[in-house]
Design a binder for these strands. Structure first.
Lengths: 158, 158
DNA sequence: TGCCTGAGTCAAGCAGCTTGACTCAGCTGA
DNA sequence: TCAGCTGAGTCAAGCTGCTTGACTCAGGCA
């Protein structure tokens, strides 16, 4: 490992590179599966809509850490592309409930299994014990500073 | 850990979150040290200019994975802000050699020590052995797909 | 000397976000 | 009951950081 140039990289670079590789692979597989009309931001939005109860466009924006306008734009695109529809909100008012369409649900299932497959590929050379340690060390790093947001940030640079 | 919500996150999310936390902390410390006129992209550019021999704007762009125009724009900003200057290239021709100014060198020193400090903080609860394993596991993940680029990508999302 | 190569620039455009000003449905209280 | 407030959502304009395309022009070369 001493002759491996990666061995001399700072930890932060290793984290960034590892994440970027896994994410790139995930996106490529998603594209190949017919979801090339979605960016990662759409994926996070869909996840918030799936997990949350009675999510509106404004709540989505807040949880993604962007403005209402940006959130609304994301929703527009998701509606346009058939993944989400706007329904009347049970609590009434002017709020519009965001719900996944059949296509949206299908995407979540496909994305989930693709992600599992990708992670399996990337960790196949790491044994179960070490993998658990890796996870717990990453969590320790995350726990060192702020509490984790409900979803990862959309942009890590710039 | 079973009751830790982070324990249920996908590995890719843990990687992204860990990276993002460390990077955010690093940037905050850099800002506090008076380098709030630099974005991460500038830092990578400075690193390429420092490490490379006789780097030109076009070579910089290529190594950052952006167009010549974008690279040139980055260089303009670095020159404007006093970190870099354009010199005549030893090999002649129309090429302009990028060199760090005194301020540029000072930045590299400061950024290096800040980065070490930040990493130390984030890994203080991880013992030396586990830390080495963490690094080697991350390298294993990186090595699974494409060979690592010379510098990390500028954008990880979008 | 005429031409080609390639570094660098100028201009326009696009994507994804921002801020600011607005609309307007529905709740609330005198 | 109605005037006014609240807050969800939208419209418009602008910014940043990139892109593509067309260009300039110095230097090398046959």
């Amino acid at each position: 490992m001493d002759d491996d140039p990666l061995g001399h990289y700072e930890l932060i670079f290793l984290l960034g590179l590892a994440f970027q590789q896994v994410q790139r692979d995930f996106v490529q597989h998603l594209d190949a599966a017919g979801y090339d009309d979605l960016r990662p931001a759409h994926g996070f939005a869909l996840q918030v809509i799936t997990q949350g109860r009675a999510v509106t466009a404004s709540e989505l924006a807040e949880r993604l850490g962007v403005t209402k306008q940006a959130g609304s734009q994301l929703v527009d695109q998701l509606v346009e592309r058939g993944y989400v529809s706007r329904a009347t909100h049970p609590s009434g008012g002017r709020r519009r409930l965001l719900v996944l369409t059949a296509r949206g649900h299908q995407h979540m299932r496909d994305a989930g299994s693709i992600l599992q497959q990708v992670e399996k590929t990337f960790t196949k050379s790491i044994d179960r014990h070490r993998l658990a340690e890796l996870r717990s060390d990453l969590i320790a790093i995350i726990r060192t500073s702020a509490p984790a947001p409900e979803v990862p940030p959309l942009r890590l640079f710039s």
